[in-house]
Design a protein around this nucleic acid. Structure first.
Length: 316
DNA sequence: CAGGTACCCTGGCCGC
DNA sequence: TGCGGCCAGGGTACCT
């Protein structure tokens, strides 16, 4: 389940191999992995995310992507929350820089492979790249469940600080590892809402990069019940929660991310080992590492939440 | 703004 | 052994 630490591990792993490389050719094996790729003029007439492509529309979209990505030179990859993108030498019709945008969804993987390496499972899109120092490489986008996707998307100046942002991530808030993240603003927003604090942590328009695993872990560390209303989190507690969230992210980064069910791997196909450091997520019925009470699981907002019923009392 | 539900998808797991 | 059904999960759409 790629969240901020996993996507950052991928970004950092990709950087030396793709920065300065040129796309020699591209091959789309499954157009469903282009969900976020919106073709230019001569449109296939279909929308993006959530829309099932007909065979003809899928073929057209694949051809559009392959044609437009071939020949582009790649710059250093960037990230905001769970969105990852590689700026390119390409330009949109409006003259804006084009980026190769990736979202890993649930099970997406970006794999760097030697030119002649054997196929990994579930490879949906393949780029052949040539790097001045590293020679020819394959960048394989693999995704078992197809919630992730690649796309070509235009970059715009960010409207919330320095830097640029792809069109499709324009509504995504900065993440807590971003230098320009506004702590006071996030805390004020959190404390002004009546929704459960976990739901607010997962709201990518308030704070990005947090998914189910790290939300549960940060709340466990902060001793907050996931359904505690944002408005019931005191100012000191909110500051503490943000600090603990950053600490969880930092530790997960050092440990190479969380590989649950071997879904997540880095660009070399290796699993991270933060799963061994989880205190609440996925530990239903196992003792709380702090007090020994069995971890409880409830369904909340359509997703499982794991917490200690003794350490994490609900506040009202 | 809040809440609920549905959808996109696969594969693991359950019960029969 | 096999099959049908359920579930997980991020992001989004759309409804009340």
């Amino acid at each position: 389940m790629p969240e901020l630490p996993e996507v950052e591990v991928v970004r950092a792993g990709l950087a030396p191999a793709v920065t300065g490389a040129r796309v020699v050719s591209a091959q789309v094996m499954d157009p469903r992995a282009l969900k976020r790729h919106l073709p230019t003029a001569g449109d296939d007439g279909l929308g993006g995310h959530g829309v099932t492509l007909t065979a003809a529309a899928g073929a057209a979209r694949s051809a559009d992507f392959e044609r437009r990505v071939t020949g582009l030179t790649l710059a250093a990859p960037e990230r905001r929350g769970k969105f990852l993108w590689v700026p390119t030498s390409g330009r949109s019709a409006a003259g804006e820089p084009l980026a190769l945008l990736a979202h890993l969804g649930m099970s997406g993987q970006v794999l760097l492979r030697a030119h002649d390496a054997v196929d990994d499972r579930h490879v949906r899109i393949r780029l052949w790249i040539a790097h001045p120092d590293h020679g020819e490489l394959r960048v394989d986008f693999a995704d078992q469940r197809l919630f992730g996707s690649l796309a070509l998307d235009a970059l715009h100046p960010a409207n919330d600080g320095p830097g640029v942002i792809p069109t499709q991530a324009a509504h995504i808030a900065r993440d807590p590892l971003d230098q320009a993240f506004d702590d006071a603003r996030f805390i004020a927003a959190l404390r002004s809402r009546t929704s459960g604090v976990k739901k607010l942590l997962l709201d990518q328009t308030l704070i990005s990069g947090v998914g189910n695993i790290y939300a549960d872990e940060a709340l466990w560390r902060a001793r907050l019940h996931p359904e505690t209303p944002g408005s019931a989190v005191g100012p000191r507690k909110a500051v503490e929660l943000l600090a603990l969230l950053r600490a969880v992210f930092a530790q997960a980064l050092v440990e190479g991310g969380t590989s649950f069910d071997a879904q997540y791997v880095n660009v070399n196909g290796q699993a991270g080992y933060f799963a061994h450091s989880l205190n609440a997520y996925g530990r239903t019925g196992q003792p709380c590492p702090r007090c020994g009470t069995p971890i409880k699981r409830i369904t909340f907002g359509g997703r499982g939440s794991h917490f200690c019923p003794r350490c994490q009392k609900r506040r009202t």
